[in-house]
Computed example of a mutant assay.
Amino acid sequence: MNPPVDNLFGLHTGALELWQRRSEVLASNLANADTPGYLARDLDFRKALSAQGGDGALALAAPTPGQIDTASQAAGTAAYRVPSQPSMDGNTVDTQQEQAAFAGNSVHYQASLAFITAQVQMLRTAITGGQS
């Protein structure tokens, strides 16, 4: 029996969507770095991926407790990040933290995309018998 196409790429299709959503959220944070009162947001990736059918056995590893507010966060929605240091205008965006998160997110996105591309290439090889 053939596996459904949804399971063909494993968790990487759902992960790719979440990495893209996180890129949008982080880009929004960076775009609003100078907006007074703007509150930085982020995704709880493990919670969102487990809601899409991933293995939810892994706990969220955060450097400090409360770094990401996950209490009221629905799967795939952005939660407000607890600021590392207060600002006078109420903006909670730390541009260095956002840039580092954006760079790391890009690496994860590229890794998931590379895995999917390799799976497609493997299927193409299997179908054509290795002939171009």
Rank of each mutant, 00 (worst) to 15 (best):
residue 52 Q to C: 13
residue 53 G to N: 07
residue 1 M to T: 07
residue 79 A to D: 00
residue 124 R to Y: 09
residue 13 T to P: 01
residue 10 G to F: 01
residue 125 T to G: 08
residue 66 G to S: 09
residue 58 L to G: 05
residue 106 S to H: 14
residue 32 N to S: 06
residue 22 R to N: 00
residue 33 A to C: 05
residue 54 G to S: 10
residue 38 Y to P: 01
residue 62 A to P: 04
residue 54 G to A: 07
residue 47 K to L: 09
residue 40 A to T: 01
residue 104 G to K: 06
residue 72 S to D: 12
residue 97 Q to G: 10
residue 1 M to P: 10
residue 112 S to H: 14
residue 120 V to R: 12
residue 19 W to G: 00
residue 44 D to L: 03
residue 13 T to Q: 10
residue 109 Y to G: 04
residue 24 E to S: 15
residue 48 A to T: 04
residue 52 Q to V: 04
residue 51 A to I: 11
residue 90 G to N: 08
residue 94 D to A: 11
residue 2 N to H: 03
residue 5 V to A: 05
residue 118 A to H: 06
residue 103 A to G: 03
residue 69 D to V: 05
residue 104 G to Y: 04
residue 1 M to R: 07
residue 112 S to G: 15
residue 105 N to I: 07
residue 88 M to K: 10
residue 127 I to C: 04
residue 31 A to W: 00
residue 86 P to T: 10
residue 129 G to V: 03
residue 77 T to Y: 13
residue 95 T to P: 15
residue 22 R to Q: 06
residue 115 F to G: 02
residue 19 W to E: 09
residue 96 Q to N: 12
residue 103 A to F: 02
residue 27 A to I: 05
residue 39 L to D: 00
residue 17 E to R: 14
residue 125 T to L: 06
residue 17 E to D: 15
residue 94 D to P: 06
residue 19 W to Y: 14
residue 53 G to L: 02
residue 108 H to G: 11
residue 113 L to N: 01
residue 71 A to I: 10
residue 74 A to N: 07
residue 58 L to H: 07
residue 45 F to M: 15
residue 67 Q to K: 12
residue 102 F to W: 13
residue 24 E to V: 14
residue 97 Q to L: 14
residue 7 N to R: 13
residue 8 L to F: 15
residue 132 S to N: 10
residue 43 L to S: 03
residue 13 T to N: 12
residue 30 L to E: 00
residue 90 G to W: 08
residue 87 S to Y: 11
residue 108 H to S: 09
residue 31 A to C: 02
residue 38 Y to R: 02
residue 33 A to G: 06
residue 32 N to I: 08
